[in-house]
Simulated scan of single mutants.
Amino acid sequence: MAPIRLAIVGLGKIARDQHLGAIEATDGIDLVAVASRNAKLDNIACFHEIGDLLASDIAIDAVSLCTPPQGRFEQAKAALDAGKHVMLEKPPGATLSEVFALAEMAKAKGLSLFSTWHSRAAAAVEPARALIAKRKIKSVSVEWKEDVRHWHPGQAWIWEPGGLGVFDPGINALSIVTRIMPESFHLVGSELTFPANRAAPIAASLSFETASGIPVGAEFDWRQTGPQTWDIRIETEEGSVVLTHGGSRLIVDGVAQIVEEDREYRNIYRDFVALVNNGASDTDYSPLVHVADAFMLGRRIQTEAFED
């Protein structure tokens, strides 16, 4: 098949750090255009807005949306209305209703929609899923703590309604847990810590349980400096299964099994190529459902103001 002609919308930090290199390393897809208000790429057709891109004579087959979730619905809808396949950076949108609406639009138009969860594409995730399916789980605990100043410098949108705050990284952990757990789980308690001057939380403490009563706990915090923590620990009757470094490393009963470099975005672009070529979509929104539940049940705690 001819390579998919791709346009990126939003040429910010995540697009430069992850998407550009992944596209270049992936067979079957070529970057042919960019729409960005504040950035351009040499030797690539560049536009200020997605509307300008879609109205141009540049031939594209698909759009990868790397913009903040607020306002992304309009961009995705415009791309689908123009007959383009769409890939959504996580989180897929600012609300549940809009992402479910996008899935319906894509299905009605026969287009591929890919709501990506890059952490699910980490090396240890599928091996961990296969392993714990054979064990009896006793508990699951998540510790996802990082430095917002390092990962999101000067990004004001992330503190606004719809930006999700600490759930922007926390949803990565939830995307892994929803993938590897052999049964579903639901929220039973949520405490959200908001800086006095921000509209989104800087920390969260969540309690879940499965229908069979297995406890699942998660601690998210954006105030950690020094080494960052992205760990998921599954205690089973047969021993411990631990995913570290965001899911790229697997430790089973204290012994390292998988240690791999970051290939998450190369994997999701590989999957996007397969979805488009097969006329399929992937729209699992379960991680975002858990985040919405956390806000619905969340007990609000105020802490000191946060300044970049």
Rank of each mutant, 00 (worst) to 15 (best):
S190D: 08
I180N: 06
A218T: 02
V166L: 00
Q75E: 12
F73C: 04
N172T: 02
A204I: 00
I214Y: 11
G10A: 09
L31V: 09
I301P: 00
T67L: 10
Q155M: 12
A55K: 13
F185W: 07
G170P: 06
D293I: 03
I268H: 11
A22K: 04
A62Q: 02
S141T: 11
Y269W: 07
M87H: 10
I4N: 00
R233I: 14
I158Y: 03
A173S: 12
R249A: 13
R266L: 11
V216Y: 09
P3D: 15
L20C: 07
F306S: 00
G10E: 10
I301C: 02
W117E: 09
G28W: 08
G83M: 07
R135F: 06
S207N: 14
D42V: 14
A25V: 07
I232N: 02
H186C: 01
P161L: 03
S205I: 00
A211M: 13
E238C: 08
L250H: 06
F73K: 12
L275A: 09
P69Q: 01
L288T: 12
G162K: 01
L192A: 04
V188W: 05
I137F: 12
L113V: 02
F73S: 05
V289I: 14
I23M: 04
R198I: 05
L174Q: 06
P169W: 08
A256V: 12
I8D: 04
V291M: 09
E143A: 15
R233N: 11
E209K: 15
Q257E: 15
D17L: 15
I60L: 08
A256C: 05
H48W: 11
T116R: 05
Q155Y: 11
A173E: 03
E209A: 12
L131G: 02
I132Y: 05
L80H: 03
W222V: 01
E219Q: 15
T95Q: 10
A62T: 02
G217M: 12
A121S: 14
A218W: 03
K107N: 14
G28V: 05
N38R: 13
I202Q: 10
P215G: 07
